[in-house]
Amino acid sequence: MGKLSVDLCGIELDNPIIPASGTFGYGYEFAELYDINVLGTFSFKGTTKDPRFGNPTPRIAECYAGMINAVGLQNPGVEKVISEELPKMRKCFNKKVMANVSGFAVEDYAYTCEKLDKCEEVGWLEVNVSCPNVHGGGMSFGTSPEAAAEVTKAVKKVTTKPVIIKLSPNVTDIVSIAKACEEAGADGISLINTMLGMRIDLKTKKPVIANKMGGFSGPAIFPVAVRMVYQVSHAVSIPVVGMGGVSSAEDVIEMMLAGATAVEVGAANLIDPFACRDIIAKLPEVMAKYGIDNLKDIIGVA
């Protein structure tokens, strides 16, 4: 059997499959269905400094080969995540987990990351810079190299664990942003977050989603994700975690050929709760079909 393990920022993963933040809760909903220790790791629900309800409903819209969500980072806030959610998670997951962090000011990111960095079960901090900066006129941190670098530096200053910056695809030059994060000390880059999208209901003649716009994900965005993973991984020397519409073992291999060291699976979990388990089970067979003995060998060969 081919070797599935990969090294992500100094921590070995049994396989490269990582359920993406916001599609896997804190793991225990899925642990009722299968042993989630088969995963490489998973990225838990985006955590902010303060508790958030998020956006009004409807938050979800159907699309061809995908969906739009505007959940708005609903989470109980970092204190409760640490005191209530992580203990529940530990009961069903015994590997290092990826902590996903969002913020609306540079200080928020630093505050939340510093707290999560101290949690033993946290292996990596995945910092989502797609949120609007309340001090920067609402522009997303992830849309400017300077703002993304500023967040990276502030987080790195107060943490000891690998920091992976999760980038938004809704930018003109993702390579310059990735490079700025690397220069600011990032240990890895993950991409792509969702693409900004919108649907309008013909009956009501109004947007389907209460927030009007939301993040488009699913198989439809896979080619964009492969392209951006390719561009970024060829421009930086830190590991890249690829995501965006990944739904099969073949997609995982394609993403790794593009340059991903590990691969996150998002929307697929929502329509098939067993998606990640099944992808992992299928990987050896697909590797054999394409003559791949060791997944590490195919990273970025495209």
Partner: peptide, 22 residues
Amino acid sequence: EERMGCGFGACMGCSCKTVTGY
């Protein structure tokens, strides 16, 4: 009734506020 993403509690797509929390 609400528009749902997953239908099994993972995505927070159909949350509402109640007297006893979200």
